[in-house]
């Protein structure tokens, strides 16, 4: 609805010929505005991505990424990667991890945003504190959680035992059944404040007279949320979910220090696998091929992420 503003008002003004030049000028302007973004990304990402793609088609014992031309071209990496039964598991775990992080993080973020949008004493202190986990660098988050999830004397075991949720200590990071949960928890903790912040900003932008009008119409709290709040939050929510989802899908900083992808591959996502192939096994070609496959899958997931998300983003 807002898209063609530049063109509509021109249409009412000038003869057809002028209109075209104005449209062209607009387009030029639009691209001009986008150029710094594309330049910043293109400059530093185009060459690495090109190397990654080139690398994924190279065979032999690759040891020199600056001179890939010396290695033979091959589809072998892709054949190996795609026929490896482990790949499906890695994809599945990446999805589980991403959904497992984004859904609770969004729920916590939304709940907090609604709470922080109300007026109550001490709000000015509560609000920055609610965002605090975001301020902790990932390295420190991973270290803190590995300390707290310690299978013997970790405080999380102690608390859960105290309230009777578990009877005996759980070796969170060593057990294949609990390891995924154990890496999801710190990631959720680190990512929920972003949702809170974006949603608080969106809530603040809802004019209060809209609520008043709804109240006058006899709307209860749920109906107010349903018909006033949620429509205003939909677009920012969708955007924040996509941005976080893309970030989490390739996240590595929490899983690797906590489990290294173990136990027995239980937390090996595509991102961990890519790292292990390159930096633990020195198979750079396979690593790059998995990277390209990841890129394709993530792109496909993003496109298929549902109409509401795309609507929200547009």
């Amino acid at each position: 609805m807002t898209t063609d503003v530049g063109l509509t008002d021109v249409r009412t003004q000038g003869p057809p010929k002028r209109r075209r030049t104005r449209a062209q000028r607009d387009r030029l302007f639009a691209y001009g505005m986008l150029t710094p973004t594309l330049a910043a990304v293109g400059l530093l990402m185009a060459y690495p991505i090109y190397i990654a793609i080139n690398l994924s088609f190279r065979g032999g014992e690759i040891a020199d990424l600056q001179n890939l031309g010396q290695y033979p071209l091959t589809l072998g990496n892709y054949v190996d990667v795609i026929t490896d039964p482990k790949l499906l598991g890695d994809i599945w775990r990446s999805i589980v991890y991403t959904v497992g992080v984004v859904v609770p993080a969004f729920a916590i973020g939304l709940g907090l945003a609604l709470l922080l949008n109300k007026t109550f004493p001490g709000k000015r202190i509560v609000r920055p504190l609610a965002l605090l986990p975001w301020a902790v660098p990932g390295v420190a988050v991973a270290a803190a959680f590995s300390w707290m999830l310690d299978g013997s004397f970790g405080v999380i075991n102690y608390l859960l035992r105290s309230v009777g949720l578990i009877d005996a200590n759980v070796a969170w990071l060593a057990n294949a059944d609990t390891a995924m949960t154990a890496v999801i928890i710190p990631t959720v903790w680190k990512f929920y404040p972003f949702f809170t912040l974006v949603l608080v900003a969106a809530l603040q932008a809802i004019p209060s007279d809209q609520y008043e009008a709804a109240r006058i119409d006899g709307a209860g709290p749920w109906q107010q949320f349903r018909y006033v709040t949620w429509p205003a939050l939909r677009a920012p929510s969708a955007l924040a979910i996509v941005i976080t989802g893309v970030g989490v899908f390739r996240e590595f900083d929490f899983i690797f220090p906590l489990t290294g992808g173990g136990p027995d591959d239980a937390t090996t996502t595509l991102a961990v696998r890519i790292y292990n192939e390159a930096f633990e096994y020195f198979t750079f070609g396979a690593s790059a091929a998995i990277g390209v496959v990841t890129m394709v899958i993530a792109g496909a997931l993003l496109l298929a992420a549902g109409r509401s998300v795309r609507e929200g983003m547009n």
């Binding site: 173990g262 027995d264 292990n276 633990e280 096994y281």
Partner: peptide, 16 residues
């Protein structure tokens, strides 16, 4: 690296 991983996986299976 790959050997270390395979053996570590076996170790964790023995443990957990």
């Amino acid at each position: 690296g790959r050997v270390g991983d395979a053996v570590a996986s076996a170790a964790i299976r023995l443990l957990a």
